[in-house]
């Protein structure tokens, strides 16, 4: 059974201790070990095969970064010429001072004065959205925020889900029609905030005041309710281990409006089950 299953290329789930295949024909990769000439899974997850290498990708693990991923992270430390960022990975990510946009144009040199006022850009606890730029030799990832899409996060709240639930999408910046923006970090951190107007500013004239501001804009009541509703939807979907996509949020939100469910009942009552059942059958 083993080899045939692997050949078909279908996803196969394993549990720890389950025999995957013979060690004669295949090489063991991550998430497996060899015992008695058999390759055995050491984690629960999906089996993947690349030529003769068999690996098991764990269903529940920390975030495994890839270059180009969009992540949401939280500053944990300010160090010389760099910030340490918690991005739900095995190690803290690094954001170099040279890979952020600084006030006064992109192409200018980093000055000593910039180093001295790093905390005016990001300080401990701040949330930011960034892209994975590269990896260091020790496996830590290096981030960059060199685009106006990236930077400090405001006007909303953070929801944390298991990283495997966040699929790679065409765009991870989702604007829902209810006036709520979502930033789906591939590391499982999701930022839910008020819809931001697309700014027409070019790279040259970027407004450092706005990008590094520590002040929220005015968020009105209906928007706050919508934000908390969307956050609850994400939590309920994550509790039911449903992979998140943009269409799913929309269906779930419309379902809630149709059924006139209070956000509170989603958490306290049985509406969560009903919602997941409803939107998963629609799919």
């Amino acid at each position: 059974m083993d080899i045939d299953d692997l050949e078909t290329g279908e996803f196969r789930l394993t549990c720890p201790g389950e025999t995957i295949t013979s060690a004669h024909d295949f090489m063991r990769g991550h998430g497996t070990y060899v015992d008695d000439e058999l390759v055995i899974a050491s984690v629960a997850g999906t089996v993947q095969r690349v030529n003769k290498l068999v690996t098991v990708r764990a269903a529940r693990s920390r975030y495994n970064a890839e270059v180009g991923d969009l992540v949401v992270g939280r500053i944990t430390e300010v160090q010389p010429r760099r910030w340490k960022v918690d991005a739900n990975s095995r190690q803290d990510a690094v954001l170099m001072l040279s890979s952020v946009n600084l006030p006064g144009g992109v192409q200018r040199r980093k000055l000593e004065s910039d180093e001295l006022q790093m905390r005016t850009f990001f300080e401990e606890g701040d949330l930011l959205v960034a892209e994975v730029q590269a990896f260091f030799a020790d496996g830590a990832m290096s981030l960059h925020t060199r685009s106006l899409k990236f930077g400090k996060l405001r006007n909303g709240q953070l929801v944390i889900v298991p990283p495997v639930l966040v699929r790679r999408l065409k765009s991870h910046f989702i604007a829902l029609p209810c006036g709520v923006d979502l930033i789906l970090g591939l590391n499982g951190y999701i930022w839910v905030c008020k819809h931001m107007q697309d700014s027409d500013q070019g790279e040259e004239g970027f407004d450092a005041e706005a990008v590094y501001s520590n002040q929220n804009d005015e968020v009105d009541g209906p928007t706050r309710i919508a934000i908390s509703r969307v956050s609850s939807i994400i939590r309920v979907l994550a509790d039911h281990f449903v992979p998140l996509t943009d269409t799913l949020f929309l269906e779930a939100y419309n379902w809630l409006i149709e059924q006139e469910v209070n956000t509170k009942d989603l958490i306290l009552g049985d509406f969560g089950d009903a919602m997941v059942a409803a939107i998963c059958t629609v799919r």
Partner: peptide
Amino acid sequence: ALSKVEIAYIRSSLLSAP
């Protein structure tokens, strides 16, 4: 640890009319 904006957001939500 929360950022200043998160703290401000939570507080202003709690202090809003309902």
